[in-house]
Design a protein around this nucleic acid. Sequence first.
DNA 1: AATTCATTATCAC
DNA 2: CTAACGGTGATAATGAATT
Length: 348
Amino acid sequence: MILHIDMDYFFAQVEERENPRFSGKPLVVGAEPKEGRGRGVVSTCNYEARKYKIRSGMPISRAYKNCPDATFLPVNMKLYEGVSENISRIIESVTKNYEKVSLDEAYLDIKEIAKNYSTAERIGSDLKKLILERESLTCSVGVGENKMIAKIASESEKPDGLVIVKPCDSSRFIVSRSIREIPGIGPKTEKRLQEILSKGNLTVKDVRSISKEQLNSVFGKRGEDIYNRVRGVDDSQVVSEKKAKSIGREETFDKDTLDPEKIINTFRKIVAEVAEAAIEEDRKVKSIVVVCRSMEYETHTRQVSFGPQVIDFDFLYKKGVRLLLHLLTENSGPIRLIGVRVLFAVDD
DNA sequence: AATTCATTATCAC
DNA sequence: CTAACGGTGATAATGAATT
């Protein structure tokens, strides 16, 4: 039995709490709009902003066009990280057996503490009450027989929802939903499924009509997963204390650039940040990946591995510059973004 | 033949 | 009218290189 908790419009709700004058009016947290010329995207917005068809992930320029009078706030990650920590402490008062998947989302394995689904409902409402009392924030909670059902349940009645799905109801609960509501089915997978069935607006029921064999032939190993998921089956586990496998930084230029000075300066800065983060984590690094995005939005990477070692700036910079040079040579056109990522050694 | 490395694609938040 | 589009991290597929 799994409980999924998802904070409602998290970044924006925290900002409303810190500054109640933002409440009740459209509020957008994300990149600077710069009179509609900004290149970033919306991180989160409140429900008033959603009335203007503003959404997470939307280009900030479009959000600005939809509602120029909205309040636009920059992302104050330190603030949200602190609040997220507080919420983690509250979750830990319920169970230590939980997996945090982002600042605003977590799965709790509650099979040991909930004998039945009415107990689970009580645990969910208690958790919501604690978070509201201690942090003045609302969230949505879903309970189901596995992580996927719990997540769809929590999404289904937000904001401030509490949805319990008993195992006997799992199949009925998902059958009429859009295929896009199944976690892991993104735009590309949806499109390929539409092509298989020669039909748009697919529901979970539609996808159930595709045989395991056909899914396997189109999607390979993932086919099995899709076959199971549309039938409500998901045996992925709640994993607490997950260690990062990589860390990276990337940066989009204000304007696509060819200026070597600008590129190398930005590169030096992000290498320094990645080196600092890797040293801070005290982890051994085995590879470095350099990312370069062209004006045409093509993303290219170059990477090199080495014996696992604790790295410093000079080491990373020497390795990275070579890769960057390769990328710039092959590209020659204006650059939109550069990035650096390090992969940690498995052990350690 | 099996494993690791390098690259790209897809997805999520 | 249409396109517009971050940063961070995970995982899988695929093919090449290495053991």
